[in-house]
Design a protein around this nucleic acid. Structure first.
Length: 284
DNA sequence: CTGGTTAATCTGTTCAAACT
DNA sequence: AGTTTGAACAGATTAACCAG
């Protein structure tokens, strides 16, 4: 049985486009050559992979199996070539990783990373991190480790716990108040970053996928963040302020590429540098 | 061992016919 | 009408062979 990656890419294109013509176009082949490539693959595996009688060219049961392997092999080949390119020239590879929107330390780490590798291509994801990691679309992500701790599919490298703080815009009625109570907090809309498990109990009325600081700066909402930027930090008393337990999460038993290792190094560096006191200074 | 020649194979194209 | 398949052909690559 001889199977080559080119044929597997063609099968993936066919599964995606559900048309020989469209799939052939997507891989820049004539439809005839594309059809023969699929035939050659079917001949190699000794069975039909696509049900041509069905209008939408559904994969056969064997086709589904081949597609599953094809995705892994094609993705693995892409990773291999990317990794080798990174070894040969660390500056021109591609890095795909993710982070929770509120994990501000990643933004600072990326700033350091792009200074060191200005030609590296960096793709950052902020949603459905676990799913994308397991689908090989990310090398790692930074997020609250709850939900990943103890799961054998993931490798979790803990970062320092990070305290959440409350912020409002300048000129907000609470901005001049010396002490804020739980009752004060309840009187205003509360905005948090989406997907932060440590903030669920606060009962926020607004969840932002991104742009939390801009929202707080332009409204009367109270924002919960690690870093208020130019906002006014509230001195809250009598309220249990939760902590985020961020971690670097990667696939178990899988080595990171050199660029991913470099980025993890930057993140750890920022994490080490930002102790509680410095966070305090940044927030005020 | 190296370089040139030749045949076989692979992968692509266009075109036409058949199928739904 | 749109799509699939097969035939004929072209160009590139590979393998085998041979001479120097």
């Amino acid at each position: 049985m001889h199977i080559d990656l080119r044929q597997l890419r063609h099968l993936l294109a066919l599964a995606e486009h559900r048309s020989f013509v469209a799939a052939a176009g997507s891989v820049r082949l004539s439809q005839s050559a594309f059809s023969r490539s699929i035939q050659a693959l079917e001949h190699s595996v000794g069975c039909q992979l696509v049900d041509r009688a069905s209008k939408d060219l559904t994969p056969t049961r064997q086709g589904l199996v081949v597609l599953e392997h094809a995705r892994r092999l094609v993705s693995g080949a892409h990773q291999l070539s990317n990794e080798i390119r990174q070894f040969n020239d660390l500056e021109t590879g591609e890095l795909r990783f993710g982070h929770a929107p509120a994990s501000g330390l990643v933004t600072r780490a990326v700033a350091g990373f792009v200074g060191r590798y200005p030609k590296a291509r960096v793709c950052v994801q902020t949603a459905e991190l676990g799913k994308h990691l397991l689908a090989d679309k990310l090398e790692f992500f930074v997020a609250d480790s709850r939900g990943f701790d103890g799961d054998s599919a993931f490798q979790v490298l803990r970062l320092k716990p990070r305290a959440w703080q409350f912020f409002v815009r300048h000129g907000h009625p609470l901005a001049e108040q010396a002490r804020i109570t739980q009752e004060d907090l309840k009187a205003w809309p509360l905005a948090i970053s989406a997907g932060e498990p440590s903030l669920v109990e606060l009962g926020a009325t607004i969840e932002c996928a991104e742009g939390l600081q801009a929202l707080v700066a332009g409204s009367d909402a109270i924002g919960v963040s690690h870093d208020g930027g130019g906002l006014v930090r509230l001195q809250v008393s009598g309220v249990e302020v939760p902590e985020a337990r961020y971690a670097i999460v990667s696939r178990a038993r899988q080595r990171l590429s050199p660029l991913a290792e470099a980025m993890v190094g930057e993140i750890l560096l920022v994490d080490q540098a930002e102790d509680g006191a410095s966070l305090e200074r940044m927030a005020v």
